[in-house]
């Protein structure tokens, strides 16, 4: 295993992980054996994790550049695996499929528009850059889960026997924990910005405005939730738009030029 991992590149590992994620989605759509779907997904997550570890190994103590998308896939896959057995009980199959579909969609973007060829830079060799990166990615995964929960609420809201899993309240723990992670990411970025450049905002990277935009959006959502000024369906739609915003701003800054993955693999 170790010689194999030493010989392959992160691109090859990611390519394999995406194939396996797609296979797992196919198995789930065909309603194949649940255990098989689970273990195939686990293998995808392991390969994805190795690809991320490869990047970190070749960058540490600096921050690996543009690993946002593969790391987001990994976070979503871990969330899927942790909740898999619980979700088998009720409407969770749809939830599982939506998460898997999202993983495959984001995986395709990662493969076709890679941007992981940038070298790390010396100023990123600080704990603050790593907190900024990791909490930011975790935040996006958690906020996407909140949006998925909101979508499920919209699908099942006319059911008379709506379960707690399908209620909008089930989205709030995801939204709040996502907001906490995003806040930690923003503030650690601010500390890093001050220590590294001496300024509160570094304008080199336009993605800073996307993080602020996502942060303000979910603050608006939390205000709407606590004041109950909109009804549940309206809040669920607002949450779903928040998910789309997260997808747009997670993808676009991390997208490089179009490139077929086969070149990397062989």
């Amino acid at each position: 295993m170790v010689p194999f991992l030493a010989a392959v590149t992160s691109g090859q590992l990611l390519f394999l992980a995406q194939l396996i994620y797609a296979l797992s989605l196919g198995l789930a759509l065909l309603k194949q054996n649940n255990a098989l779907t689970f273990w195939v997904m686990t293998l995808g997550a392991v390969l994805n994790g190795f690809a991320l570890a490869w990047h970190y190994w070749h960058s540490w103590p600096m921050m690996p550049m543009y690993i946002g998308l593969p790391a987001l896939l990994f976070c979503l896959a871990v969330i899927w695996l942790i909740g898999f057995h619980q979700r088998l009980a009720d409407s969770g199959r749809i939830e599982n499929l939506i998460i898997q579909g999202l993983i495959v969609f984001l995986g395709l973007i990662t493969l076709l528009f890679p941007k992981d060829f940038y070298l790390p830079f010396l100023r990123s060799a600080t704990i603050w850059s790593h907190i900024f990166l990791i909490t930011g990615i975790m935040a996006k995964a958690l906020l996407l889960m909140a949006a998925i929960k909101a979508l499920l609420f919209l699908i099942y809201r006319h059911n008379k026997k709506i379960t707690s899993r399908q209620g909008l309240a089930s989205a709030m723990p995801w939204a709040i924990s996502g907001f906490v992670c995003l806040t930690l990411s923003m503030f650690s970025g601010e500390v890093w910005s001050y220590l590294g450049w001496g300024t509160p905002v570094v304008w080199h990277d336009p993605a800073i405005t996307t993080v602020m935009a996502i942060w303000f959006y979910w603050i608006a959502l939390l205000h709407l939730h606590y004041t109950r000024s909109w009804n549940e369906a309206q809040r669920a739609i607002f949450m779903m738009i928040g998910g789309l915003l997260v997808i747009l701003f997670a993808c676009h800054p991390d997208m490089g030029p179009f490139r077929l993955p086969f070149k990397e693999l062989f």
Binding site: W197, W203, P206, T210
Partner: peptide
């Protein structure tokens, strides 16, 4: 809420304005 949504729209446009033109904004610091 209205101000926050307007900020989101403005910052989304900002991303596309800064992208590739950070040289305009860096001197602010």
């Amino acid at each position: 809420v209205v101000l926050l949504i307007l900020l989101v729209i403005d910052l989304s446009l900002a991303y596309f304005s800064i992208n590739g033109r950070s040289i305009i904004f860096e001197p602010m610091n």
